[in-house]
Design a protein around this nucleic acid. Structure first.
Lengths: 218, 218
DNA sequence: GTCTATAACCTGATAGAC
DNA sequence: GTCTATCAGGTTATAGAC
């Protein structure tokens, strides 16, 4: 839920507030699309969760597909812009990789729907509705950092593209499948602040260890 | 497609072969469920791909849900049994982790549907239809190996459960989202033998590097 | 075992009132 | 802006013939 505190409160009776309603629909839609994906998502469910009738969805959006596209744009474009603005070129490769990974982990932890939508969209629709920049810029940045690190000898001789994919996977896998592994942490809420913090820390360590060059033995 | 070479050939006219038909339905269903998930999957699509009519699905299976359950059992139970039979306890932790990861990569590469279904089931149905053993045994084995390696000082001080999740994620992420990252390898088929081999090699290296203890500098 | 209907229900989308 | 009512098309599942 990238936006609108308002959308989280119960809808008070008979308010007429276009901006608020539209934001509420987008929030509910993001939630539903993050569980079901485009095809299995039900407009009725989105409407019910929003507290309005189905009709309103079609008042504010052309159809289910257009709503889906807006949800994806809203969820993905702002995060990727933040990553682009990091100015990583000035940092040594290890520090650049750490900054990028940390920010990405922070963004996806703040809104785990990003992870679910990432998978559902890739699997179900072959990435058709993905904001183009997302893949290009995220992986582009990662690959550039990895290549630089290899050239400088601080990263091991790895294949940059596969490794970039593995890094992104490490960041988002836990968030997408948390319901599947919750019994490993009997009693804990998998998306609690503490658990997300642990996930971020462990994943960052795993990534940094996974790429660093062998330290030569004496 | 875990089974039945037969199912891959075009259905010859008017054959009546219960076993073959059932296997064909299961193969087509696995394909459809791996793209759409339980709810969005269409029995019509499964029937069309099988070369029979929808009626046959309900002749061989109670309903869509039961068919889905059988697909998951067939796809997941045999692979996990192979992993259990590895007898890893006798190996040192690094070798055990390498064997397990390698076998898991091999299994998921042979049938990438496993990866897609893993995600769709986790996200859409909260893992309700998962064969219970899968999670318990796969993660159980991994965590035991990691704990042993930490105790022996050959793995760095990592959190075993998070790391186990990250290892599984590294193995399956590429397979699930390959359609999203294919432009990184312009011109290559992402699931070609060569690419899958590269993915397995790079992922194994990433995992082994990600857990190993710092080698002390001289 | 396999097919052709068809029942019963669900769902995206719209018309028209307020 | 928001609602009620409703249509058209799609989808699961079954009945009954061959």
């Amino acid at each position: 839920m990238a936006s609108s505190q308002q959308a989280k409160r119960k809808r008070s009776l008979s308010v007429r507030d276009a901006e608020a309603t539209k934001a509420q629909i987008l929030d509910a839609a993001e939630q539903e699309f993050a569980i079901a994906g485009l095809n299995a998502a039900r407009t009725e469910t989105i409407a019910a969760q929003t507290g309005v009738t189905k009709t309103m969805i079609y008042y504010y959006f052309e159809n289910k597909e257009a709503l889906y596209q807006e949800v994806l744009n809203r969820a993905f474009i702002k995060p990727i812009d933040e990553i682009v603005q990091l100015n990583l070129e000035q940092l040594p490769p290890q520090a650049a990789l750490e900054s990028l990974t940390q920010l990405f982990l922070q963004q996806t932890s703040k809104n785990p729907n990003i992870a679910s939508i990432l998978f559902l969209e890739a699997i179900q629709n072959r990435g058709k509705y993905y904001p183009k920049q997302w893949i290009e810029q995220l992986y582009g940045k990662l690959i550039a950092i990895l290549e630089q690190g290899i050239a400088q000898g601080v990263f091991r001789p790895l294949e940059p593209r596969h490794t970039a994919v593995n890094i992104v996977g490490t960041c988002v896998f836990y968030l997408a499948v948390h319901e599947n592994v919750k019994h490993l942490w009997a009693g804990s809420r998998m998306l609690s602040k503490a658990m997300l913090q642990e996930h971020a820390q462990e994943s960052l360590n795993f990534v940094l260890a996974g790429v660093r060059a062998d330290v030569n033995v004496s």
